[in-house]
Structure formats: C-alpha cells, structure tokens
Simulated scan of single mutants.
Amino acid sequence: MSISFMVGPHRVRFAGKTDIGRVRAQNEDNVLVPKEMALAVVSDGMGGHASGEVASRITVETIDQYYRDTARSGPNTWPMKLPNLEVERQRMAVAIQLANSNIFETAAADGSKKGMGCTVDAMYFSQGRFYIGHVGDSRVYRIRGSQIQALTEDHSFLNDFLRMKEMSSDEGINLPHKNVVVRALGLNEQVHVDVIHDEFKVGDLFLICSDGLSGMLTDPQMREISTATNSLDNACNELIKSANDAGGNDNISAILIRVEKP
C-alpha cells in the first residue's frame, strides 16, 4: 500500500514491490519502501549461494538506519557552515559508503560470503530537491509529461567500453561481457558513490528499479505502464507482471515515487 510524506509544500508518495522472477532460485533483491521519511532504496545482490541477498539486505538496513540516526542527531552532525545541498550530498555518500564497509567486513569474517556484493540506488527527498546515491547497474528514471529520462548511468563494462572507444550503443550490443558490473558495493574496502541531485516539481514520477525490470522492458514500455493508472501500487504490480511476461530472467524490483499537491 502506498505511503506519502510532506516534503516542504509538496506531498511525495511511494509504492514498491520486489519479485523473484521466473528463472532464479532465490530473490537477491531488497527494497526499502519508506515508513518514516522520504527515503527509498533498491539493492540488487550478487554473489550466489544466497550471499547476494545478504549484501543487499545489509545495504538497505544500513542506509535506513544511518538516515534515522542522522535525522535524530540534528544539526550538530554536520559542519555548521555547509549549505543544506552539500550536507545532503555528503549524507547520501556516507550512508552508502558505510553499507559498503559493512558488506566488506561481513564477507571478510565469513568465507562462505566471500565475493558477495550488490548494486544500490537510494533516493531521498528534502527541501525541494531529490538526492540519488548510485552504484552499479540498477537505475533511476524520471518521468515528466510524455518523457522518460534515465538519471543514472550504469557502471557496466559496456558503458566503460563505449566511452573509451567512442562507440554507439548499437555498435556495442554484441560486445562480450557487456553486462558485467564494474562498480558495486562490497567488492573493495572503498567505493565511489555517484550522487545526483536536482529540483523536483509537482507531477514528476520517479522509477527506481533493478536490472531485472530495465533489462526486460524498454524505457517507453516502463513509462507507459507507470503512467497508465493513478494507483502506484497497481503500476508496480503491472511492471513486475510485464517483466515476468517478457521472460522474468532475473529478480525484479520497482519503486515508484510521485510528487503531488498537498
């Protein structure tokens, strides 16, 4: 069931769902659909033997707890001279870096979890802006009017190769290992986090998803399904169903977020 929060003069509504898909033996995705603040997370685990589920669960729980803790601690948590924009940028980056450390340390202490990792997209709304923390190949889209725009860029071998060779995506479609993730949480002691921010406005619709969704449906298909109903819960259900109907080759996670009038 969807939940909404007042963010300044706006209402921001969230709904989300995760599904095992039709091929995988377990669901290694984890999602955070918020209960206390305007924060949502999608994390796609990798590592096999259920270790991917452990990594993604650590990520979701760590980010959630960090935002709760820093919300309670108030202004003293941050240098007083920093503007709110920089405070929230740092807050997002630190939350994800802490998740990375927790995964890395858990794997180091338990040989059965060696090599586990996960992607993450976390999104927080505050004072007229959204903040995205991004590592890996899960994605965040913004749907505004008839347009859908990817706000994140996949950390994949294909994207790195295309940038290096200045090739088009059509030219790289047959590239071997194109879907290999080149940046993820838990693989190293440190990780670089992309932090993206922008202003939002009434009517904006955001989709956070794992590649089990974006890999099965085109961007126009996701836009059409997401906007076909006023119910975010129904739209999430239909996104999952459509990805499964297309093959369901991976775990599927989707969170929809809509900015509404109060």
Results as ranks from 00 to 15, higher is better:
M1R: 11
N230S: 09
V195C: 13
G247P: 02
A122Q: 04
Q147L: 12
N174T: 12
V94S: 09
D137S: 01
A15L: 07
N30F: 00
M80R: 14
E53Q: 10
L162R: 13
G136N: 04
S56V: 01
H134C: 07
D154Q: 08
G115T: 02
I96Q: 03
F125K: 05
E88Y: 09
M123P: 04
K241C: 10
V259G: 03
D219H: 12
S253D: 06
T119I: 07
I196R: 10
L162D: 11
T152C: 13
L158C: 10
S156P: 09
F125R: 09
M167L: 15
L232C: 02
R129I: 14
R142C: 09
D170I: 14
R258F: 04
G247W: 07
T18D: 01
I148L: 08
R163Q: 15
G203M: 10
A235H: 03
N249E: 09
A122I: 03
L232Y: 00
N100W: 00
H10R: 07
T119E: 01
G212P: 09
S43H: 04
N102M: 11
T227W: 02
G136D: 03
V7F: 01
F125N: 02
L82H: 10
D69T: 15
M164W: 15
G203K: 11
N84G: 13
D154T: 08
I252S: 02
L82W: 13
L205Y: 01
C118I: 01
N179P: 04
I3E: 10
L205H: 00
S4T: 00
R142E: 06
A150D: 08
T62H: 08
V23I: 06
A25L: 05
S231R: 09
G203E: 05
S231G: 05
I148G: 01
E53I: 06
K81S: 15
I132G: 04
L239P: 03
V259E: 03
F200I: 06
G74F: 13
L175Q: 10
H192A: 15
P9S: 11
Y66Q: 11
I143E: 03
F104A: 09
N76I: 12
V120Y: 00
V259H: 04
A109M: 15
L239R: 01
N102R: 09
H155V: 01
G47R: 00
R183I: 07
A150M: 13
R11C: 09
E199W: 13
S169N: 13
V31N: 01
Y66T: 15
E36V: 05
H192M: 14
Q147Y: 12
G111L: 14
S101R: 12
I255S: 01
N30E: 05
K35T: 04
K114R: 15
L239Q: 05
